[in-house]
C-alpha cells in the first residue's frame, strides 16, 4: 500500500522549476496491479523512485506499508565495477540475509539471469539486455509485497520476456506491482488499475481500460497544439 498525501516534486532547472508532480494525493491499494501511463519526460521514473523511497518529495508525505522493491528496469542500481555476482551479493547484504542464505540466493540469481560467463565479469561490460536480466533476477530473488517495474521488458529478448512473465505469474498471487510500460497491450493484459501521469498531475483509475482511454485523449488533445 502506498499513499501519497499532497505530494509535490520538482527539479530546479535554469528556466525555473520543472514540476513532475504538483499536489498529488492518491492511494495505491494493497493488491493493485497498476499500469503507469505517461508521455516521455513526464516523470514516470521519478514517480517510481518516489514510490520506492529512493527519492523524497519536495512537499507532502508518502506513507508506505509492506515491503517495496527498488525500481527495476534500466538497472541504474548496479555498480559498473562490480561483477554480476558481487552486485547480487551486495543486494543480498542490504536485505540483511545471513551468509548461508546469501550463498543459495546468489546461485538462484545466477540460474535465473542466465548470462553465462558474464556473471563473473564487471557489469560495465554488459549489454543493456544483460543488465536488465541481472537486475530482474536479483529483484525476483526476494519476496517483496510490491514490485516496481520501470520499462523492464523493453530491453529483454523474447526468451527472457517469457521467463520473466512466468516468474511474475508466480509472484502475482502474493505480491502487487506498479509497472511502467509503453506497451499498452501488455498493460491491458496484466493490470487491474491504471495511473496516468500528465502535466504534473497523477490520477489513479480503478480500471486500466479507463486509464488508457484518458491517456489517449490527452495525447490527442496535445497534438494539434504542436
Amino acid at each position: 500500500m502506498i499513499h501519497l498525501e499532497h505530494v509535490s516534486k520538482y527539479y530546479a532547472t535554469p528556466s525555473g522549476r520543472h514540476w513532475v508532480l504538483n499536489d498529488v494525493t492518491l492511494t495505491i491499494p494493497d493488491e493493485a496491479r497498476v499500469g503507469v501511463l505517461g508521455p516521455n519526460g513526464a516523470g514516470k521514473s521519478t514517480l517510481m523512485r518516489l514510490f520506492a523511497g529512493v527519492d523524497a518529495p519536495n512537499k507532502g508525505k508518502i506513507i508506505r506499508a509492506g515491503s517495496i522493491s527498488w525500481p527495476m528496469g534500466l538497472a541504474k542500481s548496479m555498480h559498473g565495477s562490480l561483477t554480476g555476482k558481487e552486485n547480487a551479493r551486495f543486494a543480498c547484504h542490504i536485505q540483511g540475509l545471513t551468509r548461508d542464505e546469501i550463498k543459495t540466493t546468489v546461485v538462484g540469481i545466477q540460474k535465473f539471469a542466465d548470462i553465462g560467463k558474464y556473471f563473473n565479469m564487471p557489469v560495465r561490460t554488459y549489454s543493456s539486455g544483460m543488465r536488465a536480466r541481472l537486475n530482474f533476477a536479483i529483484a525476483m530473488a526476494f519476496d517483496f509485497d510490491c514490485y516496481i517495474i520501470d520499462e523492464l521488458t523493453a530491453v529483454g529478448d523474447k526468451i527472457f520476456r517469457q521467463k520473466s512473465a512466468a516468474a511474475f505469474h508466480g509472484k502475482r498471487e502474493k505480491s502487487s506491482f506498479i509497472k511502467v510500460s509503453h506497451n499498452i497491450n501488455e498493460l491491458k493484459k496484466e493490470c487491474n488499475m491504471g495511473l496516468v501521469l500528465f502535466n504534473a498531475k497523477a490520477v489513479l483509475y480503478p480500471s486500466i481500460e479507463e486509464a488508457i482511454e484518458v491517456y489517449e485523449e490527452y495525447l490527442n488533445e496535445d497534438k494539434p497544439k504542436k
Partner: peptide, 29 residues
C-alpha cells in the same frame, strides 16, 4: 486526483489502519 480507499477494492482479511486524513478518510492496509 481521487482518494481511492483500499477497502473499496474488496481486500479480504484483516486490515490495519495506517492514518486518518483530514477529510476523515482512513488509509488501511
Amino acid at each position: 486526483a481521487r482518494v481511492t480507499n483500499a477497502s473499496n477494492y474488496g481486500i479480504m482479511g484483516k486490515c490495519f489502519s495506517l492514518a486518518v486524513l483530514k477529510n476523515h478518510v482512513t488509509i488501511s492496509s
